[in-house]
């Protein structure tokens, strides 16, 4: 038995190395169809596989550039940093985790907020930075999301949030949970003022983010095959002890069950958002008319 086990391990190691070496290089292999694409071409195509249309993960900086009109993005709230209110420590102290995340994903915590125009419509926009601790929502993310709504209210412009998050950040305990209440409160004020808010669910949008503002859009859109749900599939499987149905919690599943308005390709997202925002907001539409000088 011993020789057989060893052999299997060494085989696995080789295959993992091979898999990792591909995307780093000039060529990328599609996770869905296996097609090899020139990486620059894939990036050019917003990381959507030109053969099968599979949406690959997209770095937030690339997404901002793709969703907001060129030169219009003005990032705000960059002065906010996470503290360590609980003095939390698992295998690594929370403060160290933050330092590491800042090094790899930038100083803005797991959310980028600002003002930009989307297909000509000026909007208060927010992007989850999934690269930063899995897009988890602690105090800083909650504050930035709240400010996206408040800014939309102050300036009478629509709000758009692109969500990608594992949920509330455990390291800030109950304070993270309360960000669900805080963000939903700000969202409520926007609804009362009849200012449009479009929620775009990216892969994955789960836990506390799904269970608050991500599911509170006037319109809720998603990218193809994005996982959107309250509990993670692993937790559900452990709880019920049975296999989950194919496509469970994917965007297509949510549309079927009436939880999403539409699935929109990343390649058409910006123009589509612009068109929807123009139809929803008289104010937003008026701005476009002004800009065109009519």
């Amino acid at each position: 038995m011993a020789w057989w086990r060893r052999k299997k391990e060494s085989l696995e190691r080789t295959s993992v190395e091979q898999k990792q070496s591909l995307p780093k290089g000039l060529w990328s292999k599609c996770d869905a169809c296996g097609e090899i694409t020139y990486t620059a071409e894939l990036v050019q195509n917003l990381r959507v596989c030109p053969v099968c249309g599979h949406h690959h993960p997209m770095p937030t900086r690339e997404r901002i550039a793709a969703m907001v009109d060129e030169g219009s993005w003005q990032e705000l709230d960059t002065e906010l940093r996470s503290g360590d209110p609980l003095g939390f420590r698992d295998s690594v102290p929370y403060r160290e985790r933050i330092v590491k995340a800042v090094k790899s994903a930038g100083p803005g915590d797991a959310f980028a907020s600002g003002i930009g125009s989307i297909d000509g419509v000026s909007a208060s926009v927010g992007f989850f930075v999934f690269e930063f601790m899995g897009g988890s929502m602690g105090s800083v993310v909650g504050e930035k999301v709240t400010r996206v709504f408040e800014r939309a209210l102050e300036r009478r412009i629509p709000a758009v949030i692109f969500s990608a998050s594992g949920g509330a950040r455990m390291q800030e305990g109950i304070l993270s949970l309360m960000q669900l209440a805080k963000t939903s409160a700000a969202r409520a004020r926007l609804r009362e003022a009849a200012i449009p808010y479009i929620s775009v669910c990216l892969h994955p949008t789960t836990g506390g983010v799904a269970a608050s503002f991500a599911m509170l859009g006037d319109l809720i859109l998603a990218e193809p095959k994005a996982l959107v749900g309250f509990a993670g599939p692993r937790v559900i499987q452990q709880t019920i002890g049975q296999e989950l149905p194919a496509g469970f919690q994917r965007a297509e599943f949510l549309v079927e069950h009436g939880m999403l308005d539409q699935i929109v390709s990343r390649l058409e997202m910006r123009e589509h958002l612009g068109s929807l925002l123009r139809m929803l907001g008289p104010r937003a539409a008026a701005q476009v008319v002004d800009a065109q000088g009519v």
Binding site: L180, A185, R187, L216, A231, V235, I240, P245, F248, G258
Partner: peptide, 24 residues
């Protein structure tokens, strides 16, 4: 909140989110 197939199908996250907003 219960993590089950039916609960997800019927919008567990939407139900919770709507409650939060309503209570405000």
């Amino acid at each position: 909140a219960y993590p089950g197939i039916g609960a997800e199908e019927r919008g567990q996250s939407e139900a919770i989110a709507t409650s939060l907003e309503l209570m405000m």
